[in-house]
Design a protein around this nucleic acid. Structure first.
Lengths: 348, 348
DNA sequence: CTGAAAGCGCTTACAG
DNA sequence: CTGAAAGCGCTTACAG
């Protein structure tokens, strides 16, 4: 493969001049150099450039699962930004594993300029080390327990949980279950807290059997829903704390031939592309996706601007929004202090 | 950041010895070096290693759209392989654009050891150049017109198109429409050909208004379906050539309050995670997804084995399979040389 | 505007 | 097993 020396020799200049030309500086022999570049099919070595300049123009992105449509959308947003700025993305899945995340981060420290991370656990220590090593870090979707010093793009998960609970309460539900994400993760903890606090404040108690922890995966949503349905007194409404678990719950409900929302109402967190097309169309707590990726990447790239002065951490918290479709409705026979704004179910 | 010299100095050895230790060779001062590495929090510079060794241990992956669940699954499969082999993935979307793909490829040539590509067009020339530059290339999902010299993992798209057509013919449809992908792409062309050939062979003619070309995106599926429905004589069955267009078609059908499969049958190519949960559950041509990624990456990494002798191109063609769910059924009133294996529709 | 030269941080024959 | 030395392919002050 041709090197900068080959190009220089062919164009009759020094390698330094070729280098200057390539970085857009004005040089006398521009045409000759361009011709040599074309003829030799020259492309600079990224490794040599990185070694010399200390910049890789690559951003590491670590998410729990790229097949989760939410993260796919977030990554898409990030890519639209990196593309326009001349950066590229080194992508990896942590698989919700802290150990895996640590390995990935360690591996990335010396090959990227910065990292966007959705930490698997709020107690992670590795991000601090990475930052101490001089690699800027931005959180997306998830935070650290003591993450205030990091840039972050998050949503108001607590609020989202509240909205979900308020919606079910408004329909008259009192036997309400929640399938939450791991409590060591930001969205797992916050969504559950918002949901539970709202129920408690309304005088609705949630028995332990109704307060389940999933794994943010479809399988977890499926299994926990089955366990809920096998209870002597199953809930009349279920809140699933992310898109994949919602899908799992929906599958379980279908498999058990449960009428939605006749027998059980289902409200999920995070909308799906297929949300309106499902049986029944899904009621969900929605939030920006692509936009989160865009904002997170902008926050990160901003740290590479020269001169860079403003060193304060930027924390962006976006709002959630209820999308009321058809998977929630009033319970068949209100069993508690039901509100009375709905016309009521007729069956049984 | 600490360098190998710092570690060497602290351990009282030469940099060469540290380097040997790090690559697993036997050295006398192993403990001292390990201690120095730990204390200094040393991590080798990927750029320096790449420059010196000529290997980046990074694989470039270029797909049309990572938010397409099919490609997300393929990438997941690829990642499971790279992970276990000490490689990482540089991921990028071509957005179905040839120009964008060219840019990405050119950019990657000097920063990866190999590339897995789903070419946007069968006439692409750039892959040849990349290969000539010494970077191994494997195709996945899509091929080049003269791609026999490249490793590839594909599926029998023609066969899949045939299966879809045979299924609709078997139900008695004669007014059959197809929404295909761009004919310059492998799956766009092959799926349509298999579908059309089968109809033609059965004596069913497809008018131009029924033979539409989409863009493999949801929006394309939506718009073309609307145009189909606005025809004086709309089709009784639609074949959509990929998952996203199927979703778009389903949305259009819902929006126009068309009964599926009562008024219109819908059969898609590529299954969806939500396939069984949709209204109605989708009949599709299915194919391996994660597995394709695994196979493609194995094919590629095999080229880096030492010593590498077998230089013949490996072409893997996987089979498709019909999943018969509920979005297809007999037409309301058979209008052509209908077969008679179904019990027939009752309405109208 | 241009060139000679140093150096980024490693790896690897080459001697010992 | 070990060290000194060269070199991977660039970039960038430093002079001119």
């Amino acid at each position: 493969m041709a090197t900068i020396h080959d190009v220089a020799a062919r164009a009759g200049v020094s390698p330094a001049t070729v280098s200057r030309f390539l970085r857009g500086q004005r040089v006398r022999s521009a045409e000759a150099i361009q011709a040599a570049v074309d003829e030799l099919d020259y492309w600079p070595s990224a490794a040599a450039q990185a070694l010399k300049s200390g910049r890789t123009h690559t951003i590491g992105v670590v998410v729990p699962d790229i097949t989760n449509p939410y993260f796919a959308a977030v990554v898409k947003g990030m890519e639209s930004v990196t593309r326009s700025q001349g950066y590229r993305i080194l992508l990896a899945n942590s698989d919700e594993s802290c150990e895996r995340e640590d390995e990935l981060l360690a591996d990335m420290v010396r090959r990227v300029d910065g990292i966007v991370l959705a930490p698997a656990r709020e107690q992670d220590q590795t991000p601090m080390h990475v930052r101490d090593a001089g690699v800027p870090l931005v959180f997306v979707d998830r935070d650290l327990a003591d993450g205030e010093q990091f840039d972050a793009v998050l949503v108001n998960n607590y609020d989202g949980g509240q909205q979900a609970a308020a919606h079910l309460l408004g329909l008259g539900h009192t036997r309400v279950a929640a399938i939450s994400g791991r409590q060591e993760s930001t969205p797992g903890r916050q969504r559950r807290e918002g949901f539970m606090d709202t129920l408690t404040a309304a005088g609705v108690e949630v028995p332990p059997a109704y307060d389940l922890i999933g794994d943010f995966r479809e399988e977890g949503g499926y299994q926990t829903t089955l366990s809920l349905l096998s209870l002597p007194e199953p809930p009349t409404a279920i809140f699933t704390a992310n898109n994949l678990m919602t899908l799992g719950a929906l599958k379980a409900l279908h498999d058990m031939r449960v009428d939605i929302p006749g027998q059980v109402s289902l409200i999920g967190f995070d909308d799906l592309d297929t949300g309106p097309l499902l049986r029944p169309p899904l009621t969900v707590i929605d939030r920006p996706m692509v936009e989160q990726g865009v904002l997170a990447m902008r926050l990160l790239l901003r740290r590479f601007e020269e001169p860079y002065v403003d060193d304060t951490a930027r924390r962006i918290i976006l709002d959630t929004k209820l999308i009321d479709r058809a998977s929630t409705g009033p319970p068949r026979r209100p069993t508690g202090p039901a509100t009375h704004r709905q016309s009521g179910g007729t069956s049984l």
